[in-house]
Amino acid sequence: MNFPAELKYSRDHEWVKMLDDTTALVGISDFAQSELGDLVYVNLPVAGDDVVAGETACDVESVKAVSDVMSPVSGRIAEVNEALDDAPELLNSDPYGAWIFKVEDITDFAELLDAEDYEAFTKEEH
């Protein structure tokens, strides 16, 4: 299981990569994709929509279940990763490369953990 040190993580298993002070990429962690199993569809959010930290931003469907993706930040969706439309399996093969959406004008954050604490969290949760 991989937990890149340069990322922050939410307790809902999303990762956040800050591009500057108010812009970030969001995806799901290696742990999350492994729990979900093979992803078959990513119900991408819409650019321009507002997201709120700790609330649902979109959902993903695996062969096992539909699961919400919570936004770890509050802000506005600047862009979505359209590549996931054709290739949802990228979330399995490259969870930290396959960002789901980019948020801009970030005004608030959910509680975020660093890689070490997040790794510990995934172990204590399970």
């Binding site: 809902d12 062969v63 096992k64 279940a65 539909v66 699961s67 919400d68």
Partner: peptide
């Protein structure tokens, strides 16, 4: 398979799941 229950090769049940926070 992943989501079916069969009796004598015929599907009698299909299942599906949803995760909501810490509930399923």
């Amino acid at each position: 398979g992943r989501n079916d229950i069969l009796v004598e090769g015929r599907k009698v049940s299909g299942t599906a799941q949803r995760v909501f926070k810490s509930r399923i």
